[in-house]
Design a protein around this nucleic acid. Structure first.
Lengths: 153, 153
DNA sequence: AGGATAATGACAATATGTTGTCAATATGAA
DNA sequence: TTCATATTGACAACATATTGTCATTATCCT
C-alpha cells in the first residue's frame, strides 16, 4: 500500500520540527546550568524573569510563557515558599494575586542574568545576528500559524 | 550597580532561545494531537519512529532523540507491554536488546505518519522551504556548538 | 589473557508539565 | 441588576524527563 510522501517543503518542515525539539532539550539543560549556581532551575528562572518584567498573576505568567497555568502555579508556590517571590494584593482582582520579586529574588535573578549575558553574547557572536534574527522571525510565524489553526479547532 | 548588557547579537540569541522553547511546547502539543487518534503521544511516537528507522537499542534511541536514556527506557517498556514494539536479541550485545516494531506498531506508526504528512506539508507550504531550511541549519549549528562546549566542560 | 573503563538496563527519587475538576470571583450581555 | 460565561487558584492524577545508583556486560589498552 503506497502512502503519499511529503512535499519538499513539508519534508523541510518536518526536519525543522525535530530540530526544534532537540534544541529545546539542549537549551533547557543550558538554562539549568546557568541557574544552578544560584540554586535555581530553568523553570524557576522563567517564572522569576516573568515576575520581574512586571508584576503579574500566575495565570498571566502562564500565558506569557506558553505553559499550562497549573505548572506555573506549582513553581510559583515553591518560589514563594523559598522567599524569592511574594504575592501582592491585586487591586483589580481579589483572587489573582500579583507575583513580585523579593530582594532575595532580585539578587538571584541578577546573578543568573549576568551568567546568561556572557552565554548569549558568546553564542550570538558565534552564530551571527542576522541568521539568528531570521530564524526567530520564522519561529514567531510558525507559532502564530499554530495558534491561529488552534483557534479554529 | 551597573551590569553589563548584552551585545546586539547576544540579545538576538537570547530572544531566539526563548522562541525555541515556546515553539517546542506548541510542537509537542501538535504531536500529541497527531498521535492521539491512534492512542499515542508525542513521546511514544518519537520512540516508534526511531525503532522503525532501524532496529536499535534503547540507549541508541536515547542518543538519537537527544533524551535521557532512562526516559526512553520507560516509554519503550510501555510500548512493549502494549505490543507495539518487541525486544529482539542483539547478536552484538547480550543486554542491549534491539527494539523492533510489531505489525500493530507499524500500523499505528503509519497512521500517525499519514496525519503528519498532511500537517507538515501545510505548514511547509505556508512558511516557505528556503527559510525553513536555513533555520534548520542554524539550529543544527547551535546544537553542534553546545555539544562541543559541553564536551569541554 | 587480564584488568581498568565504559555502556547498559533495572530501580528509584525527583522535577517538570498537562489535564481535569471544583468553588470562588470577574466579566459581559440582556 | 441579573444571569450566563469565563477566569482563577486549589487540589489531584498522571505523563514526561532528568539524575543518581547499582550490577551486569562490553570494550579497550597493555
Amino acid at each position: 500500500m503506497k502512502r503519499r510522501s511529503r512535499t519538499p517543503s513539508g519534508d523541510a518542515f518536518a526536519e525543522f520540527a525535530i530540530s526544534v525539539l532537540r534544541l529545546a532539550g539542549h537549551l533547557t539543560s543550558e538554562g539549568d546550568r546557568l541557574a544552578q549556581p544560584s540554586g535555581q532551575t530553568s523553570a524557576r528562572w522563567q517564572v522569576l524573569a516573568a515576575a520581574r518584567h512586571n508584576a503579574m498573576s500566575v495565570a498571566d505568567a502562564a500565558r506569557t510563557l506558553g505553559l499550562a497555568r497549573q505548572g506555573v502555579q506549582r513553581i510559583a508556590d515553591l518560589l514563594e515558599a523559598e522567599g524569592l517571590i511574594a504575592y501582592r494584593d491585586n487591586p483589580a482582582h481579589q483572587r489573582a494575586k500579583l507575583m513580585t520579586l523579593t530582594e532575595r529574588g532580585k539578587t538571584v535573578l541578577d546573578e543568573i542574568t549576568a551568567r546568561q549575558t556572557v552565554w548569549a553574547d558568546a553564542l550570538g557572536a558565534e552564530t551571527g545576528e542576522e541568521r539568528v534574527r531570521q530564524a526567530t522571525t520564522l519561529i514567531a510565524d510558525v507559532i502564530a500559524i499554530l495558534k491561529e489553526r488552534g483557534m479554529r479547532r
